[in-house]
Amino acid sequence: MTTVAPLVEVDGLVKHFPGDRGPWPLARRRRPVRAVDGVSLRIAAGRTLGLVGESGCGKSTVGRSILRLIEPDAGRVVLDGVDVLACRPRELRGLRRRMQIVFQDPYGSLNPRMTVRQALREPLVIHHLARGSEIDRRIAGLLEEVGLDPAFADSYPHELSGGQRQRVGIARALSVEPSFLVLDEPVSALDVSVQAQVLNLLSELQQRRKLTYLFIAHDLAVVRHSADEVAVMYLGKIVEQGPAETLYRAPRHPYTASLLSAVPVPDPRASRQRIVLQGDVPSPANPPPGCPFHPRCPHPRKNDRCRTEPPPLRAVGPDQLAACHFAEEPM
């Protein structure tokens, strides 16, 4: 995989949200929230990178910063040789044809006052991709491609089910023929039976259109099904990264291991050793010193070094990276 030139390269991405001011006019600003704190990623063309973590770990901020829906504070994002963060507004609008996003909430991501046709028409008009009757043909084609009857074109979002709305969201993202898609929790809000339909659709589309995915999710099982490579985030940093197979079979970071063991398995006979983490995720405004995971870490070798010295993300196996001082030692 390393031989293929990456389509998307992210280097040292940083995004700190300024802290709120308190309720008083002269109060000092609270500490900034370090949502993303130095994240680097590479995604090869046609592949899927799964970005996993719990709420507040910064995974969505990474996705939106890559597309510049949020302006990152530092770092470099390169899409197929183009420096995304250096683009001026005009160039950026052109670049948006190449990178798109599918959102989690199929209720919030469609304008409630626009029909499906109007929603799909908009990108075609913005980028002058079609005109006249060609527009309607393209819309019908898009709807068919995502498995919807073209008769849905004149429906309003509230007339559609969650799964149908999510298909419309996917069709909208595809309308500009992008090569790179950020999938921001695309199936988390859907029922199990519909979730499987949408996951299958996404993998079909990937094959047919040679798409590259950044698949953001909190659900390790969903990512396992879809991703070639997986990165695990905790408090704004990547703590482990590697080929999906290896990472799921032999996680090297204790956080990945606990995350994996916490996923409920639909099999009552499964006798798994559960690692139940103690405590809550610390606030990203006030991360612990040293290894950010040390207050909850179940690793038997945890010691003073973890409390003071932040572990770097380093190679711990073929193509596998982990940010733990004791990644090589058994849990």
């Binding site: 597309l67 829906l69 950026l92 990178m99 996003i101 989690q104 991501s109 006052r113 990108p123 909208r172």
Partner: peptide, 28 residues
């Protein structure tokens, strides 16, 4: 802050278009 506005930005819509087509109709 709604996602359909973010989606419109991601599609390359200019601010004027976002206000006129996505924001104001919902304020109507």
């Amino acid at each position: 802050e709604r996602e359909f506005v973010a989606a419109a930005r991601a599609l390359g819509a200019r601010p004027a278009r976002i206000i006129l087509r996505h924001v104001l109709p919902n304020v109507a």
